[in-house]
Amino acid sequence: MDPFVVLVLCLSCLLLLSIWRQSSGRGKLPPGPTPLPVIGNILQIDIKDVSKSLTNLSKIYGPVFTLYFGLERMVVLHGYEVVKEALIDLGEEFSGRGHFPLAERANRGFGIVFSNGKRWKEIRRFSLMTLRNFGMGKRSIEDRVQEEARCLVEELRKTKASPCDPTFILGCAPCNVICSIIFQKRFDYKDQQFLNLMEKLNENIRIVSTPWIQICNNFPTIIDYFPGTHNKLLKNLAFMESDILEKVKEHQESMDINNPRDFIDCFLIKMEKEKQNQQSEFTIENLVITAADLLGAGTETTSTTLRYALLLLLKHPEVTAKVQEEIERVIGRNRSPCMQDRGHMPYTDAVVHEVQRYIDLIPTSLPHAVTCDVKFRNYLIPKGTTILTSLTSVLHDNKEFPNPEMFDPRHFLDEGGNFKKSNYFMPFSAGKRICVGEGLARMELFLFLTFILQNFNLKSLIDPKDLDTTPVVNGFASVPPFYQLCFIPV
């Protein structure tokens, strides 16, 4: 058959498939802009700032609406009420993970971030239990974070109060905490193996944040037939998995079943207990991918939040002064901060919360999916439909947070200066898919920041009023603009 005829037939089939998918069930789905064949609503979305586009569309179609990214149908949730109703009140029905062709290629359905069903539930339950087990290797997770915080302070001392970009050092600290939990080992910041790991993690975040990856996920045929950065992403992930597998083999040879040292040991012990169960989800494949998931999810998000926190503290020296006064009063100079201190430091706690609220790190979270046909607000959402959640619409709700575009710790303080919780605080998402490392991340943010401010004054290279804190939105995360500062020993 003539190649031209084959091409026309293929394009015609794709067009018909697109029209059929977009028209099927439209009477039951939430409203939304009319999609174009094949490309859907992509032309109506700013790929570099999806969150802003969703906010604009919500003003037209309401808090629940339908979009098509290519052939992929998505239902968008915008605003606290619908997000709570879906992710919390109907948590089980909305607990699936959205379709990610690239991740599915890399992870093969294993791990904790992109798995679904029984596998996801069992691996998540085990990971939560293990991360909360403060007795691994007779050292609590808090001990590990405190140790890394001391190392971080010593690295900052080496800058000798000269101007520096904190990106690298602030990236090393949370990565080392995860390494300590998974591998029972922290690395020197100049260790070549550690630097290679950091390089792969950072490069992957840069790649994932590009519009090209959005295109690959919406048109998965590209993955096999086109060159691009997605190939580098898959190569980096394969490198990390190979490295983790080597460490798993080392653990198998040296493990003491009665004295687990780290996450890998705990997983291997669980595998041993379930070795007679042919349906067990505790396999080497799941261990390797879960460890890679924890490394990827637990490094860049925390380091970016820390980097943004220091920029905001530079911009608002009056806030920094209040935090340091609270540190001096509650902790002093002669001991290290600990998590028990947080309950006695409402202002510092409010500042950490406000940093996370203000920066809105992951504006749309990772997409969910419905696990069955769901009736939601008089609409029928078919099983498997991807759910896109606007966390921006919750964290920047102007009824809950007056002047949401302003950095103001009073958003989390009552009139008496006591810490005030808010149900709208969802930087880790909400419901059954809430970030498994939430507790660890909150511990790291509090301890790293208090250790830094206990030991250093922060000095800006320019007038604080002239510092730009506008986030650089890159399609996946909101990151701070480049800046330098000086760490002046107190």
Rank of each mutant, 00 (worst) to 15 (best):
G111A: 02
E274V: 08
S18F: 15
P409L: 03
F114G: 08
G343S: 14
I257G: 11
G117Q: 07
N403P: 02
L67T: 06
L156S: 01
S12D: 04
V351S: 03
L485I: 10
N455R: 12
L237Q: 10
F263L: 10
K375P: 08
T290D: 00
P404G: 07
E104A: 15
N418K: 14
L310K: 01
D463L: 09
H368V: 03
F446D: 03
D360T: 09
L287R: 00
T386C: 07
F65Y: 13
Q324T: 10
V113A: 13
R206G: 09
P480S: 07
G98M: 11
V352W: 03
F428R: 01
I60A: 11
E93D: 11
T283D: 06
R150Y: 12
I215K: 05
P33S: 01
N423H: 15
K121Y: 08
H411C: 00
D397V: 01
F219V: 10
I387K: 00
T229N: 14
A430M: 12
C266P: 00
S140E: 06
S140I: 06
R139T: 13
I19A: 14
L71W: 15
K232N: 07
Y358M: 10
E253K: 13
I42L: 15
L449A: 04
P166I: 04
S242V: 08
L391T: 02
P427Y: 02
A238M: 13
T290V: 10
I213G: 11
A161P: 04
V177H: 01
E274S: 09
L156R: 01
P227V: 08
S460Y: 05
C164R: 06
R26E: 14
I244D: 01
H230M: 06
Q193V: 13
T470E: 13
S140M: 07
P464E: 12
L380F: 15
I462G: 10
F476G: 07
L71P: 15
R139E: 08
N56G: 10
I387R: 00
P382T: 05
T302M: 15
V323L: 10
Q193Y: 13
K52E: 07
P30E: 01
T55N: 12
K48A: 11
Q192K: 15
P337T: 03
M240L: 15
R108T: 05
G40K: 02
P346G: 05
F4I: 08
V5N: 11
F263M: 09
H251F: 00
L458G: 02
E274Y: 08
F4K: 06
G439M: 09
I169M: 15
F407L: 03
F100Y: 15
S115M: 02
E142C: 07
F282K: 02
L57H: 06
F376H: 01
F168N: 11
A441G: 08
C164T: 14
M426T: 05
K249G: 08
V64Y: 02
Q184N: 15
R377V: 03
L9F: 11
A291R: 02
C151P: 02
E241Q: 15
L413F: 07
R125Q: 15
E354F: 02
D468R: 12
G439R: 11
P367H: 04
P30H: 04
F94P: 02
Q278D: 12
V83F: 05
G343Q: 12
R329N: 07
N474R: 13
F65V: 05
Y189H: 07
I244C: 05
F114L: 07
K249P: 03
T371K: 13
P363H: 04
I42A: 12
W20N: 06
K190E: 12
R132W: 09
R139P: 11
F267C: 03
E300Q: 12
K432S: 13
N418I: 08
R342L: 14
E405M: 15
V64R: 01
A106T: 14
P260Q: 05
P382F: 02
K420L: 09
Q279S: 15
I39C: 08
F114Q: 09
P480G: 06
R150L: 09
E325R: 14
S95R: 05
M426Y: 08
I47A: 14
Y68D: 10
G343V: 12
K48I: 03
I215D: 03
G62M: 00
K232R: 14
E122L: 09
G343Y: 14
Y308H: 06
R157T: 11
D360C: 09
K375N: 13
G332Q: 04
D408F: 04
P101V: 09
G296T: 14
K322S: 10
P211S: 11
G228D: 04
W120E: 01
M345K: 00
V177R: 01
R307G: 06
L201T: 09
I88R: 05
R157G: 10
L306W: 01
F187M: 11
L294Y: 05
G431S: 02
C486S: 11
L306C: 04
G135S: 14
S429C: 06
I331F: 03
Q356K: 01
L29F: 11
M345A: 00
S280H: 08
G98N: 08
K322F: 08
K121Q: 12
K322N: 11
S254A: 09
E122N: 10
L245W: 10
G437K: 01
Y308T: 06
K383T: 07
E326Q: 01
L388H: 01
K121G: 10
E250P: 03
C338E: 12
V490C: 14
F401A: 00
I327D: 00
I488P: 05
P163T: 10
W120Q: 04
E281T: 11
H396P: 02
N41C: 03
I207V: 07
M271I: 12
P337C: 05
F226K: 03
L312R: 01
D165N: 08
T320Q: 13
H344P: 06
K28G: 12
S422G: 03
R144V: 12
A86I: 00
S478G: 10
E318Q: 14
D397K: 00
L233N: 03
E325K: 10
P464R: 13
V82G: 05
I387W: 00
E246A: 14
V330S: 07
R26N: 11
N423D: 15
F110K: 12
V352H: 01
R132H: 12
R150D: 08
V355T: 06
V76R: 01
M240E: 04
P260S: 06
C435D: 03
Y308F: 12
L71F: 15
Q324R: 12
V394D: 03
L11G: 09
Q193R: 12
K420D: 03
G40P: 02
L16V: 13
I169R: 05
C216M: 12
E155W: 13
K322R: 11
V153M: 10
G98V: 08
F187K: 06
Y424T: 08
I488L: 13
N286L: 04
N41S: 06
N107Q: 14
I141F: 12
T305S: 11
A291N: 05
N474I: 07
L313T: 02
N423F: 08
S18A: 14
F425I: 03
M255S: 05
L87E: 03
E438R: 09
A369L: 11
K48Q: 13
S422A: 02
I381H: 00
P427R: 01
V351I: 05
I223Y: 10
Y225T: 10
I359M: 07
N277E: 11
W120C: 06
R307A: 09
R333Y: 13
L128F: 12
G228K: 05
K375I: 13
I269G: 09
Q279G: 12
T34H: 13
F401I: 02
A103W: 13
P63Y: 00
H251T: 01
I257M: 12
G343W: 13
L268Q: 02
A161Q: 12
I215H: 05
W20V: 13
A477N: 08
K273P: 05
N423I: 09
R144K: 07
P33E: 00
K235Y: 15
T34D: 08
P30R: 01
Q146H: 12
P317V: 07
L295D: 00
Q22K: 10
D191T: 06
Q279H: 15
T371W: 03
T210E: 11
N204V: 08
R342N: 06
I169P: 08
G25W: 08
V394T: 05
P346E: 04
